[in-house]
Amino acid sequence: MGRLYTEDISISYGEKLIVKNLDVVIPDGKITTIIGSNGCGKSTLLKAMTRIIPHQSGSVLLDGKHISKIHTKQLAKEMAILPQTPESVAGLTVGELVSYGRFPHQKGFGKLTKHDIEAIDWALESTNTMEFKDRSVDALSGGQRQRAWIAMALAQETDIIFLDEPTTYLDMAHQLEVLELLQKLNEEQGRTIVMVLHDLNQAARFADYIIAMKDGEVIKAGSPTEILTKDILRKVFQIDAEIGEDPRTNKPICLTYHLIKGEQKNEEVLYANDSNLVATS
């Protein structure tokens, strides 16, 4: 069992049930990616696990404690969250932005201590954003800005970092830049990384563990090799995919695919039958 996990969690927006009775375990010290079609509950699950939104039933536990009962500052010392479209105050410098990551550790009037300053500089160095410390966040490119936000998350000095679609709106080079940075943080510092990604090949390349969701349920969770298969992609996305092997990483890669037209209902019936067989075996 990992440090962070859910037990029978359900999440609703108003009357609409989005996530249904999920049991999810986040592996410690690994990169976990959540995949699935739009509206399947990926971001909703991420937000519930970080207490951004409430869940209606079940539990989210960190080190055996319900996160709802952990003090906000204490929880912020354990996990950091980078939302899908973070926004900063106009004119804020990169150094000022990253300093916000020290808020959970501050007391009294919030004056930065020597350790706070060291943590900020370390986060800037780790993300190669030190040269932008005195520059306005608004003046940065998309990739530079995303690295600055990751630096803020690093300055919190948490073991767990959540990112909701960290490559959104970035070009291919900047996407790779951000994902390689997260991989480096995981490999060199042992950070547990949890992120939502849309690109299947990026998920397979950078993740150790993938959670594949559909309609608020987990279809399957496992290694990239276990998830990036014709059968799983058919069930999750209704696509007929051809899977190969990335010659550089030896990870599975989706070479091409086409939509399965008129077969969705049959696929859902087949999946339900598979689930019943598993449940009764």
Score class of each variant (00 low, 15 high):
D138I: 09
S99Y: 00
Q74A: 13
L179M: 15
I26F: 14
L61P: 01
I210L: 02
A48C: 13
E268C: 07
G29Y: 00
D246T: 09
P27M: 11
S223E: 02
F237D: 10
F206D: 03
T50F: 12
V98G: 00
G95I: 01
E157T: 06
I34K: 01
F237V: 08
T168Q: 14
I117G: 01
I9N: 04
K73T: 04
G29Q: 05
T6V: 12
I232V: 15
Q84S: 05
L97F: 03
E87L: 13
D240E: 13
G244C: 02
C254N: 11
D159F: 00
Q106S: 14
M213W: 00
S68Y: 14
T280L: 14
D134R: 06
T225L: 01
Y5G: 11
F206H: 05
V269P: 07
N21P: 11
K114G: 06
I26G: 05
S275V: 14
M1K: 14
G64F: 11
A203C: 08
L170E: 02
L277H: 13
P54H: 08
M49P: 08
K230P: 04
R135V: 05
F237Y: 15
L4Q: 09
T168A: 15
A221R: 03
S275A: 13
D134Y: 08
D171T: 01
A241S: 15
L140R: 06
R205F: 05
T168P: 08
D8W: 06
G2M: 11
T6M: 06
V236L: 11
Y209K: 04
I219N: 04
K261F: 10
P54G: 14
D164R: 08
Y13N: 10
T225A: 12
G108C: 05
I120A: 01
A207H: 00
N250M: 11
V98R: 00
Q106D: 09
P83V: 12
S223Y: 07
R102V: 14
D274M: 13
A139R: 10
L112R: 01
G39H: 03
N273M: 11
L154H: 09
K111W: 09
K73G: 09
S136G: 06
L97K: 05
N266G: 04
